[in-house]
Nucleic acid binder design. Structure first.
Lengths: 337, 337
DNA sequence: TTGTAGGCGTTATCAT
DNA sequence: ATGATAACGCCTACAA
């Protein structure tokens, strides 16, 4: 095995009998090279196993092609699906995703982000529950473009992609009413992220518009376990709810399991349940959860195409917000769909 | 907003009144700088918002700090948990994870890998079901160290981390026998990856050692849906199995749901079920699946520490294989745990 | 301990 | 269309 593993443009040039610049141009989109030269270069490159060094290219061009994915709870069904969609879309457009996990508590979030900055990532996509304002600030300050997904921050500069959570929540009220339910409840986590709160507010407001009160309960973070606890609390109430909207499918799964296995309540006969995200488990036979589909592909496409379109523009220039519609997916957890 | 976003070491040096090299040394681990100089440099760097440019550093050191995660089915519970563990561990040791998704069919696997090579990733960790031999070959050829997780390839060079699938499968037979079951079945996907096949062979062999035949069925890829189909096939057999080992938890969940909701079979009374991976859903009340835990943290730690220890060594030098034990997690899906 | 000089692999600029 | 040359930001000798 040779000591020197990587072959440089110079070596390719030597073998092809052309100049270094010719090699560079061959691998630069939209540069002018004669077909003959190009052929010779490609041939030599293949023979030698040459790959353009993006470290050096990034240094020159001041543009690395790296996009940083800042994400929390990434082992969660919804998050992992989103990350996958984003990674694929980035890959598809010739960029590459760097993964920064923000689940660790020891202040390594900040550390990780600085790491991304050191690699001169062109942009960051934040899929994290509650990023500090300082994080987004740091990104922008370092010339990164920024995409915020499902985070209705007030910030200027980044692209913000959101769902119409409030409107969706209103549709749940309609569905519950149509199923003949009047004792409504909302099960939320304590995370307090903008989209979760929007669902809560939308649900409560729509209910009030119909003259109904909603019992709201919040607990823990957005997990299956929290769903169980929330069920414990809501299903032991004197005027037990007959319909509950869970802020998240994961909560809903826990809620349904507790209702069924612990309280022997039948869904949807005795209790209607709705969720949000349309995670894979929502379609499983044990849950058959009526929920809202996150348009993952659209989110990813919008995010990446914005990054592409803004390639040359200054990061703080085009502030932009996209509001997407969430389709309701009817399954068995609400009666009379 | 200034045109120039990134501040260079030179600017920090100017402000601190020292030389460029002093700045470099301050940010290089184990270089000798006087406390006084270091202080001045740090101060100037903070004031200016300086971050070492890893693109340039990687160029010089011939070592990028980037580790490529090559992964398929990453939205799956088990895979996403593994990716998370790896990303965290890498982050923890100052490296950064690049995500390469191999789910797309259009030959973009190869494309993505080349992408990683272009960034001069120091290593690749393959968590993909069936990477072509050519992929691993390409990695090694380009001076990357390679970690293969749950892939018992014959290759020399990479670190191979595997579970003792066969031995684990044998324990399932014991458990089934202890529960009084004699009509054993194995539900597998058609993926044919080494670890899946090892579970199958281990199960069949252990059963044979007890004088029992196993009905083996394979279908589709490793998904919930496949589990349902497999149930359909196995539970309509004349001598219906009373115990089934599913190659994967995801298969098991589908299997259980079909058994319960479609055939009204009670688990574990009429049917014992075991799975593999210990995904989060295995612990959900609807499944209570007895399964084997993948030691994710250990896998991640072993992988990363091997990468660290081998930092300076040649990639093909230390071939190494690690075989990990999978702990059996007892839940309700096997009678008499 | 500190500063100076040279080079890493690439692309952009400017001639030709 | 092609080739020489100068950056890009950093690190590592080497000399002081």
């Amino acid at each position: 095995m040779p000591q020197k593993v990587f072959v440089s443009a110079q070596e390719v040039a030597d073998r092809a009998g052309v100049s270094r610049s010719a090699v560079s141009r061959t691998f630069t989109l939209g540069a002018s090279v004669s077909p003959e030269t190009r052929r010779k270069v490609i041939e030599a490159a293949d023979a030698l196993g040459y790959h353009v060094n993006h470290l050096a290219r990034g240094l020159m061009r001041n543009e690395s092609g790296i996009v940083c994915l800042i994400v929390s709870d990434m082992a969660t069904p919804h998050r992992s699906a989103l990350v996958k969609a984003l990674a694929q879309e980035l890959q598809h457009s010739g960029k590459i995703a760097m993964l920064v996990n923000t689940d660790l508590l020891d202040g390594s979030v900040d550390l990780a982000l600085r790491q991304a900055i050191r690699y001169r990532a062109d942009a960051s996509i934040i899929v994290s529950g509650m990023p500090d304002k300082s994080i987004t600030q740091l990104c922008l300050k370092n010339g990164q473009r920024l995409v915020l997904i499902n985070r209705d921050d007030e910030q200027e500069g980044p692209l913000r992609i959101n769902l119409d959570d409030e409107e969706a929540a209103g549709r749940v009220v309609t569905a519950f009413l149509r199923a003949g339910r009047r004792r409504l409840a909302f099960a939320n986590s304590e995370a307090g992220t903008p989209s979760l709160m929007a669902r809560e507010h939308g649900f409560v407001a729509a209910a009030k518009a119909h003259g109904l009160e909603v019992v709201v309960e919040r607990y823990g973070w957005t997990s299956y376990e929290s769903g169980r606890v929330l069920a414990q609390r809501l299903l032991t109430l004197s005027g037990r709810p007959d319909a509950v909207f869970c802020a998240t499918d994961l909560l809903a799964c826990g809620f349904i399991d507790a209702a069924r296995h612990q309280f022997f309540i039948r869904v949807p006969d005795q209790l209607c349940v709705a969720g949000f995200d349309d995670i894979e488990q929502a379609s499983w036979a044990s849950y058959q959860l009526t929920t809202f589909a996150q348009p993952l592909a659209t989110i990813a496409r919008e995010a990446v195409s914005w990054l592409e379109s803004n390639e040359t523009a200054k990061p703080e220039g085009q502030a932009h917000a996209i509001r997407l519609h969430a389709d309701l997916v009817w399954r068995g957890s609400i009666r009379g769909g």
